[in-house]
Amino acid sequence: MRATRWKPSSHQSGMKTSSIEVHNLVKRYGEIEAVRGIDLEVQQGEIFGFLGPNGAGKSTTISILATLLKPTSGSASVAGLNVEEDPGGVRARIGLVFQDPSLDDQLTARENLEFHAYLYGLSSSIRRERIDEALAMVELTDRASSPVKTYSGGMKRRLEIARGVLHYPQVLFLDEPTLGLDPQTRARIWEYLHGLRRREAITIFMTTHYMDEAEFCDRIAIIDHGSIVALGTPDQLKAQVGGDIVTVTTDNNAVAAEEIRQMFELEPHVADGALRMEVEDGASFLPLLLRKLSIPVSTVSLSRPSLDTVFIKLTGRTIREEEAGNLDHLRSMASRWGGRRR
């Protein structure tokens, strides 16, 4: 049964079962409404991406699903259990990889996994085997006995993923699993996640603000200001943008934009010194544009819509890179005056 299975399926019951169900979920902090009535359903075995800028409500939603926060109103169930009625049951069936590191870096990788194995009640007969298997999955077997403080950021994240699946959860939550990692490491982590899903029909629910990663997901929800603004497969979402994206830079963008408006009845966006427009068929539009414009064109590019474009179209903004959190600052402070504890 190790067959490669791209689309989610439920070989067990023969019918689709949903791993996560969320109805009209709201979380309020005083005046601030972090999550404003979210509805979604994630099928078993699906990789579901939750995409949005900082402060959009991604982490809050994950925290509610993982029973770390109580919803203000609405309901959520994970692995068939209501998060408010049976938080213990939900916890036993989920794995979590947090946005911020949550390893004990004084301990070795193996010790961190042992700690986890005990917390999740794995019996001594399978503990060792599971730990070896998890270390092998993320290729950390060689370094299992080194203290985690000697690990690189990517290794730590891999270890956290190994820990998250150690107890064979039905649903794995990943909050920004690739944040701050270099492209090779990110690619590796995606390999693990896809491999994991192929082998285990595990449901993966992840947040990210890397647009290119969203394309690895089966389905994506785009969240902005606490609400879902779009939900679908990457292709469906791209289809919402319509045609191709043509970007040109000219010697005089203002004049060129006016000409385009009049001649082609298009509405070009001016951004970063370039004109950007959406057209049905970019390949045949471009020669026409170049011929008709009176202003010399310096660069031209033609692209298929990406999730980036979808995001800009839906929210009017681009997703910015995460800034270094307060925590990093604190961490360096703490190591200065409290170095003896860590």
Binding site: M1, Q12, Y118, Y120, G121, P169, Q170, E200, I202
Partner: peptide, 27 residues
């Protein structure tokens, strides 16, 4: 036991909470 092939099965993810709490104190 669930050691062979990790697939979704009835036993999977079902953790004995009381036993886990005792082990948790220890760990």
């Amino acid at each position: 036991s669930e050691t062979a092939l990790p697939q979704v099965s009835a036993g999977r993810g079902a953790v004995n909470v009381r036993g886990a709490s005792l082990r948790a104190v220890y760990i």
